[in-house]
């Protein structure tokens, strides 16, 4: 049997075999979603591995961890903060109309790989386009934005609306 014949047989057989059983995964996305936690878990130590006898020490550790996560993590719940999850980035900057497209380094990453930056306090109400620059070269739009625009050089900008009093509409 020639090489190409064997390869063709392999492809054909595997494809047919899978096609015949494809129904089994018809609802897989729903089954998977049902099992996922509603909030993304952060990497954390396996508590089960910590000796059962040191409950008191473990409790102190839990409290410490909670405090650490709340005070050291990115404040993405704050409407005045822009965030980007990018654990592998070495640096992330914000570039926007309100920075005159000058890259402004973002804080981070936190332990979940989130980079963040607080909007300037003196930012004026209005519509601003913006994006993130990863590792000094890669333009990344904000997936949490509610509006996007295509630029003339075929990139995508996110759009932020700064509202005068009632707060800022942002991703």
């Amino acid at each position: 049997m020639h090489e190409h014949e064997l390869e063709s047989l392999l492809k054909e057989t595997l494809t047919h075999y899978v096609d015949a059983h494809r129904d089994r995964v018809a609802d897989l996305e729903y089954e998977v979603i049902e099992e996922l936690p509603t909030s993304r878990p952060n990497p954390r130590p396996r508590w089960s591995l910590i000796a059962a006898g040191v409950v008191a020490v473990a409790a102190v550790f839990v409290v410490g961890l909670w405090v650490g996560l709340n005070f050291l993590g990115a404040p993405c719940h704050d409407p005045d903060v822009l965030c980007l999850v990018y654990p592998q980035a070495k640096s992330v900057s914000l570039a926007s109309q309100f920075t005159l497209w000058e890259p402004v380094p973002m804080n981070g990453p936190d332990r979940s790989g989130v980079w963040w930056i607080r909007l300037p306090k003196d930012i004026k109400p209005g519509r601003y386009e913006y994006g993130f620059i990863v590792d000094g070269t890669r333009w990344v739009y904000d997936p949490r934005a509610t509006e996007f625009v295509h630029t003339f050089d075929d990139k995508i900008n996110s759009v932020l609306y700064v509202v005068p009093k009632e707060g800022r509409e942002q991703p």
Binding site: I33, T38, S39, R40, V85, G113, P143
Partner: peptide
């Protein structure tokens, strides 16, 4: 990115 933010 959305999934990383917990969007199931």
């Amino acid at each position: 990115q959305r999934a990383l933010h917990g969007d199931v």
